[in-house]
Design a protein around this nucleic acid. Structure first.
Lengths: 209, 209
DNA sequence: TTGTTTGATAAACAGTGTTCAGTAAGTTTG
DNA sequence: CAAACTTACTGAACACTGTTTATCAAACAA
């Protein structure tokens, strides 16, 4: 076996394999974002990229693993939207803007958000190392919370619990809204109430934490 | 047509129809709570109650409508757990206990909770009148919030927005926990952090609202 | 050139929600 | 009571789903 020859081939194969993975994910993402998750099957994805359904199983163990790969893409995108906000000087303003960003991300990318925070499917079989993207996003939040404490805006509590509390508060609206659980409010008032509730949450944190 | 005779029969038929509906729902509920939603099919339900799958479609337009009927059962159960708490004298304590109840309900009845607040399916086709159960539960919350305002515990804001904010806060944890989105915390700390975050939320409301 | 590995696939399996023609009882009418 | 009609139910089919496996041709190694 000629080492330099086969090594080149191995590298190319690896590259081609990764390209194929991305091709599948691109096709899947396009379909999911356009038609919603419930209406997209492995066969649809295979058709879209002009391969047989069985081929997809050479690159992803099952549908959940494919969904999880998209879940990771979602986190990359979300963290990308959080990063510019880190430049804001006032830590509390930074926190509020991150909350607003979270909600905006959810409204603009409902399918991705679903995958990241609501759907069961992608979390079914999961290792520790798969959490790096989620960790990164939550890390940004804890850091801002710590800054708020350091600046004396918040009292000093356990940072993790505080961050968790804030995340939950923001996530709550978002999830209820996305899953159409606000039927008790008349359609027209809904956006207003959401907005008021968000502002009230920020105000309450400001005063009470 | 003899009026008194046929009226008796019509009534019996109506009664039998309702009994059949309940029989189907009982079977469905038992299977869903035991195996989770993803693993229960119309055929399973039909087998369990010893009828043909097609029969179920004589009583429910489709699977979503069946799920929505269970969703309503869930609300009846939850409101049933909230009612005794209404006797508590201190409105803030009442609010906190309702929050605790919400979380406990979710942990003890994850499948029902899922149906009530997370799953897409049962909300797909929904009229206004279908919201009575949800309205009732949210009504209990707004009333307690109003009491807190009247007692001077909370500042006077829009009751609806305030109730929405509190609901979201509590719902947030619950949904994230149930959907296994707390992978960034080590397994053993999770319950503790959830508890701390809940207490912190109550404390913050107490001080900041 | 021969032998081996690899990537892709057609076909099948076991399941899903849902519809519909057909049947056998229950009910009403002459 | 017998005939006509109505109703509740079902078997079988339709068009899907995710997933596995035997097969085959092309790429590679000896």
């Amino acid at each position: 076996m000629l080492i330099n020859k086969s090594m080149g081939i191995v590298e190319r194969k690896e590259r081609e394999r990764e390209e194929m993975r991305q091709l599948i994910l691109d096709g899947a993402q396009k379909l999911f974002l356009a038609n919603g998750f419930e209406k997209v099957s492995i066969r649809n994805i295979a058709d879209a990229i002009e391969y047989s359904p069985a081929t997809i199983y050479l690159y992803f163990k099952d549908k959940n693993q494919l969904l999880f790969a998209l879940h990771q893409r979602g986190f990359v995108k979300m963290v990308g939207e959080f990063l510019p906000l880190q430049l804001l000087a006032d830590p509390f303003e930074k926190l509020v803007e991150m909350g607003r960003s979270y909600i905006r991300f959810a409204v603009e990318n409902p399918e991705l958000f679903d995958l990241m925070f609501i759907m069961n499917a992608p979390m079914d079989t999961l290792d520790k190392e798969d959490w790096v993207e989620g960790d990164q996003a939550f890390g940004l939040l804890t850091r801002v919370v710590q800054e708020c404490m350091d600046a004396g805006i918040f009292q000093k509590h356990d940072v993790q619990s505080t961050a968790m509390m804030i995340w939950s508060g923001i996530h709550g609206y978002t999830a209820l809204f996305l899953r159409k659980r606000l039927g008790m409010f008349p359609e027209c008032d809904r956006e207003l109430i959401m907005d008021e509730a968000f502002n009230l949450f920020c105000e309450t944190l400001r005063r009470g934490l």
